[in-house]
């Protein structure tokens, strides 16, 4: 008995014991704080969001250059510190790449977070309902998931995106209506196993209504999983936005998004190579950090799942 305990102890990472017992969330936060990679990634994301939100402030006070201001004499200006607004260079009509990246970030991050929260709302709602209520609802949800999962996503997006005038709002709608299946599957699976547990039976025995069981007892238990999925989802959606832009079906100029700035820049590859680098790098960094945060959160929230 002691021998086994020693072996397992040896293999685990040594996390100092805490003085007081804590709940799931503060425990997770404690573990997360010690995970430097995840914290760094989280910091990058928060920074990007704050800087994007503050785009008008940067535009007015730092760069002093409007995001749609043109200067044809300085088209394709390479990155320079003088003037400061060309720090990332100028695009094909002399607009400031830096200011446009700030505004593009608002759109790209906005689409990512908005579509992900819509997907989560649909996915969690349907997953809980299908998994807990079973029966007809479950069968219907499963059939729709099977159909949607059997069409390669890019084909489906291609056809649906050509239905609408491509703007941020239709894009959010399309991505969330077509992309909820994976989340639903996860939540449904969790719900199926949770509904057989004693605490649910106990809740029902004392007369809890179905909505109460769903939202007060089941939902908190799938919450950790949902948060992990959300972080990864935002990243995937941002990649989709870029891919759709490349196919000409994303958000259209003059509204800047990282995806369409990147696509647009590829037409001027030889005259303004610098224009291709920055939006692509920002998308890559953001998605990378989101995936890292997702990984870190999974380890922090469920130490049993830790993938070493």
């Amino acid at each position: 008995m002691t021998a086994t305990a020693e072996v397992t102890l040896e293999r685990r990472e040594v996390v100092p014991l805490r003085r007081t017992a804590a709940g799931l969330w503060s425990d997770a936060w404690y573990r997360l704080r010690r995970d430097r990679v995840t914290m760094a990634a989280l910091a990058v994301i928060v920074l990007l969001i704050l800087v994007s939100l503050a785009a008008p402030i940067f535009e007015e006070l730092v760069f002093r250059y409007k995001f749609d201001q043109q200067d044809l004499l300085h088209a394709y200006n390479p990155p320079t510190l003088d003037p400061i607004y060309y720090i990332f260079g100028a695009d094909e009509i002399g607009r400031s790449q830096a200011v446009r990246l700030l505004y593009g970030g608002r759109v790209s991050l906005g689409v990512g977070f908005a579509a992900a929260s819509l997907q989560l709302t649909i996915g969690v709602g349907l997953g809980l309902a299908a998994g807990y209520l079973r029966g007809r609802i479950d069968e219907l949800v499963i059939f729709v998931i099977t159909v949607l999962n059997s069409i390669p996503q890019i084909f489906l997006l291609l056809i649906v995106a050509s239905l609408f005038a491509p703007g941020p709002l239709p894009l959010i709608g399309i991505i969330s209506v077509l992309g909820w299946t994976q989340i639903t599957n996860f939540v449904r699976g969790q719900t199926l196993s949770l509904r057989e547990r004693e605490f649910i039976t106990a809740a029902k025995t004392v007369g809890a209504t179905t909505p109460r069981v769903l939202f007060r007892h089941l939902l908190p238990n799938v919450m950790p999983l949902i948060i992990v999925l959300a972080a990864i989802d935002v990243g995937t959606i941002m990649l989709l936005e870029a891919a759709l832009s490349f196919l000409g079906l994303g958000i259209q100029p003059p509204i800047p998004s990282w995806g369409n700035m990147l696509t647009n820049a590829t037409q001027y590859f030889f005259r303004g190579g610098h224009l291709v680098v920055t939006p692509g790098f920002l998308i890559f960094m953001t998605v990378l950090c989101l995936y890292l945060v997702g990984d870190g959160l999974r380890d922090a929230l469920d130490p049993r799942l830790k993938t070493h």
Partner: peptide, 11 residues
């Protein structure tokens, strides 16, 4: 393994 997923393919 993480960054391979985060790159936009066309980029």
């Amino acid at each position: 393994a993480v960054s391979g997923h985060a790159l936009p393919t066309f980029w």
